[in-house]
Design a protein around this nucleic acid. Structure first.
Lengths: 246, 246
DNA sequence: TCAAAAGTGTTCGTGATACACCCATGT
DNA sequence: ACATGGGTGTATCACGAACACTTTTGA
């Protein structure tokens, strides 16, 4: 497990990390019928970027991704998936990082390790918006949720990375039954449908959607949820995890 | 495009390559109703491994993979797909590489760059068996096809890599219509069905399979193929590529 | 009692499955 | 002619889409 009490700090010369390899994380959350991702902001530069990190020489690649996730959200046991490796030459643009370091009061050497070429392994993660607590990293000043439909400009090729992550999420959504990772413990069928509609960006047929989900046999129906609305109260559902199915 | 006249040679100290990153390629072929992959053999060691390579500092990651493919098969324009990054600590086992280098007459230094930890980007490729010409790399003595159903022991975690590649191929097969890359220019419906049955490891229903394939609208029917068998001659088909569909 | 939302029933069309039948071909 | 493999027609079934109807709730 990752050690949140002692988050991994970036070293001045990159010692302790694998050289030339990085991780970029597209962390999805869902709130108020909007799909959101976590972004870092670098003060005085106006630059925004995906959360990321480097791999310790003593660390598995996937564990490094889990550590980054944990450090940015405070959550463990997050749904996490590799989706692509970004390794084009033209993605190496030292200008943003130089600006960030300068704004931080650091004077970057011409060939500082953070300014060189990086191969970046893209991960996407699905988290419960209500539980995640965004935490900036040591180079950034804020970490927060941004609507996927209204993203600010991002540094380097991070826009491309987000797009590819979203595409992967869309194709994985039905096949892997992962949507539930984006919802709280209990939710209504309307919540679930809204989530699917938002991710896939297309309306689902209400009755068909309900039947399809229930026919999967992975939802447990709980008590009704009285919202105070002038209408029939919906059931709450809970996702049956594999450990519960035993 | 990759330059086959001057294949990239491994440098003594790894100069010119990105450190700590490698490519492993699972190159699929199909012949005589068998799914095969390309393997390298290192003489005097009995060790066998997947084709692989390193990324030039001046080269895109995907181009490096295409270069490896081209160097091992003599083919360009190969169907190629990233499928996973292998980055566990325990995959670093210097023993096989040390044995290979020793057998080659090289005396590997204790911390030779080839013996350290590598993050490996897994690619799978689909090639026309009848066109590929297996070519060993500078460290190996032979390069050839091996039945997937009867693989020899492989070094390190290469068995795992093959398994993951096959799983990815299976899930991608229908979704991306990539099976045709494994067949010659023209083929019979029986050939195609045999390919699908071999990859998916399950029988397909003859008439249903034919209708499904034809309904995709991506097959062009050509002349009949007289095999000399005492039965009706099957049609030959050709896959309609996107450029032809315009 | 009414409107809005939730749950369920019913019909319809599509596509896969399974089976049957006919066609072509060389022995 | 006939055995063998190839192509196509047809009945059946499962499943999703679309629509309708009923139920529940608070104003």
């Amino acid at each position: 497990m990752s050690d949140q009490l002692h988050p991994v700090e970036i070293t001045p010369n990159g010692q302790g990390f694998l050289p030339g390899i990085a991780i970029d994380a597209v962390i999805f959350g869902f709130h108020q019928n909007q799909l959101k991702i976590l972004l870092l902001e670098y003060r005085n530069t106006g630059l925004m970027a995906l959360p990321g990190g480097f791999i310790l020489a003593t660390e598995n690649l996937n564990d490094a991704a889990r550590r980054v996730l944990s450090e940015r959200t405070g959550l463990d046991d997050i749904y996490l998936e590799q989706f692509y490796v970004f390794g084009d030459l033209n993605r190496a643009d030292p200008a943003p990082m130089r600006a960030i370091m300068t704004a931080k009061g650091l004077i970057p050497a011409e060939h500082h390790w953070l300014l060189g070429r990086f191969i970046s392994v893209g991960y996407y993660a699905l988290v419960d918006f209500t539980k995640a607590v965004p935490i900036p990293d040591s180079l950034s000043d804020s970490c927060g949720w941004y609507d996927l439909s209204n993203l600010p400009p991002l540094i380097q090729d991070h826009k491309t990375i987000v797009q590819k992550a979203l595409n992967t999420l869309r194709t994985d959504l039905d096949r892997k039954l992962i949507g539930f990772n984006l919802l709280p413990e209990t939710f209504t069928m309307a919540d679930l449908q809204s989530l699917y509609e938002t991710i896939l960006d297309q309306k689902q047929h209400r009755s068909g959607f309900q039947r399809k989900m229930l026919s999967l046999g992975i939802l447990e129906r709980l008590d009704k949820h009285y919202s105070g609305g002038a209408h029939k109260a919906p059931y709450l559902y809970r996702f049956i995890t594999e450990s519960q199915q035993l």
